[in-house]
Design a protein around this nucleic acid. Structure first.
Lengths: 343, 343
DNA sequence: TTGTATGCGTTATCAC
DNA sequence: GTGATAACGCATACAA
């Protein structure tokens, strides 16, 4: 690996001259620049970004930590973030952090390998985030408890969990459903828990009984869990009437749908179902599934902008918080499709 | 940001002593180590990974370049790679490189920000790869033309494209189908093109006519394109009999399936369909779709191992190539489900 | 057991 | 227009 030193030696000029030439500094003559560039080509010189970062005390990268890069909510976010960062010529690096593998992510944080981080993974603890965030590396976390954030360089992107789960429950009730089953998913999923609470609140608001027999635990958020739990649901349908099923996740709903169809139960004629998140798959099945869109992209656009503000314009947490919450950051939208019947 | 210098000053010992203490060197006394650690805690010291990398002339990271991190073929690969790297305590960093955004990936390569790279994106050109791969940073690319690889530090993971597309076509023929339509996807997809060739070869082998009317261009590999092109297919079914449809991708097949069902065409009673890749979604629809599994994970496990060999054991391209191709790296497997009817 | 000196590859600050 | 030199934060060979 050739370095600027090698170039300098070859051309018998100083290292700094080479550096400046390579960076097209106006202080360097045109002929020198050309000589340097030519030599660089000859020696197969490639610059060492690490050394540059060290010298500059900046990495120019934003670290994005994901628990599961498969999920559409992640890829949506990714797109939004990348869009904003590209404008500013900031690099984006993704590392995953989940149950079984989070060392890389933690190392990147604890070793200050970024100028800012967006943490979408729950597996990086509040404590960790609090101890390592600093002025040169603010950390954005999503949907955590505000009271657990003690560091002034970690900003929590609050989500208005008040309405979560209420919207779609109300929608089902308005459509004439009374016996609405609820399928819980992964216990670790914060959002999913809030949806359940919204469901309960809404039933109460409409003076509907909360029947424990209609609450199911899938113990996971994906297709397979949905498929499996729906076996149980079908069993209980023998004794209790169920008009509609609120799956806490689209994937669960898709799995459930398939089980229902296999058992000859028609959706939505025999039972209506809804999912949550507006994952692409929800429209790919027959019947397509009514769901709710969280507008993750819009949120992340704003997060990215706030983050850039802190990185490049020396804004403080207080500054960006105002903008982040200027209008309600969170608003969900019901996507009506064909899995719900009005009665 | 405190550095070891600060610690040294505080404790009035040398910088190197601090460095060694922090790295738990046996040369340093226990009491000194404790003092140092305590001081580090007090000063809120966090180590600077960048500086370490510079000094060590190693980054300990493998760079994974993806075009579309959404695709299951990517997440499958990710899992396999991460599994192998974790064993060796090597970090994995993902950056995306697609049509509109590949600067980050290119910068990471050209600035030597990794000890090795796996490039799954077609948007990083052969030329680029050839100019930047070096002994300290080998680059693995997937399924490119071997003759375009001129650098001895880029290893091309060949895939046995001979059989691709033949297997499933033969399967359809054996099931009694004669008029088999083919739906092409994105023109940029290398694998998809090979599948088409396999399809053609197989028809010839069985002395079946290749009917241009039954070849469709979806111009994309995803659900929406499948949905759209199937409109055309249904139109031509009025004039030409079609027993089966070979969608070049599962997503296309899922989109097609939905359109067929909407139009009241039964799958597989009226027409059989197959996809390719064994994406999770192919089993989530009703009827579930017969497809072929490329065993991407197994391939990537082997790739990761080869790469680790080059990184840590100084193995050469020649060395790893042998192992990579020891047994056929590529073998596809037909996953029989419910979208094909025997006639 | 500890300290000194040097180097990693680059940029920045001066002085020339 | 150019060249020494220090500095970035850390690790290491060697000396003490």
């Amino acid at each position: 690996m050739a370095t600027i030193k090698d170039i300098a030696k070859l051309l018998d000029i100083s290292v700094s001259a080479v550096s400046m030439a390579l960076n097209d500094s106006p202080e360097i003559g045109v002929k020198t620049k050309e000589k340097v560039r030519e030599a660089a080509r000859q020696l197969n010189y490639v610059k060492n970004g690490i050394a540059i970062d060290l010298q500059r005390q900046k990495t120019n990268i934003v670290l994005l930590i994901a628990d599961n890069p498969t999920r559409p909510y992640f890829t949506d976010s990714l797109q939004a973030i990348q869009h904003e960062l590209t404008k500013k010529n900031i690099d984006l690096v993704i590392v995953t952090a989940n149950n079984s593998h989070k060392i890389t992510a933690e190392r990147f944080i604890s070793e200050n390998r970024a100028d800012a981080v967006i943490c979408m993974s729950r597996f990086i603890s509040d404590e960790f985030v609090n101890t390592y965030a600093n002025k040169n590396m603010p950390i954005f976390v999503l949907g955590r408890s505000p009271d657990l954030i003690t560091n002034d360089n970690v900003v929590n992107v609050a989500i208005d969990y008040e309405r979560v789960g209420e919207d779609i429950t109300e929608y089902l009730i308005q459509a004439g459903h009374r016996n609405i089953a609820f399928v819980k998913g992964s216990k670790a999923s914060v959002g999913a828990n809030y949806r359940y609470e919204g469901y309960v609140r809404t039933l109460r608001r409409f003076n509907l009984e909360i029947d424990k027999n209609l609450i199911f635990e899938a113990n996971g958020n994906d297709y397979d869990h949905g498929y499996k739990i729906t076996e149980k649901i079908i069993d209980t349908m023998a004794e209790h009437t169920i008009d509609a099923i609120f799956y806490v996740t689209d994937d669960l709903a898709v799995g459930g749908l398939q089980k229902l169809l296999e058992k000859g139960i028609s959706v939505p004629d025999d039972v209506s179902i809804v999912g949550y998140n507006n994952y692409p798959i929800s429209k790919m099945v027959t019947p397509s599934i009514t769901t709710v869109d969280l507008h993750q992209q819009k949120i992340m656009h704003r997060v990215a902008k706030a983050l850039i503000g802190m990185m490049t314009e020396n804004k403080t947490k207080a500054d960006v918080m105002k903008k982040l919450q200027k209008d309600t950051i969170f608003y969900s939208e019901i996507i009506e499709r064909n899995s719900v019947k009005k009665r």
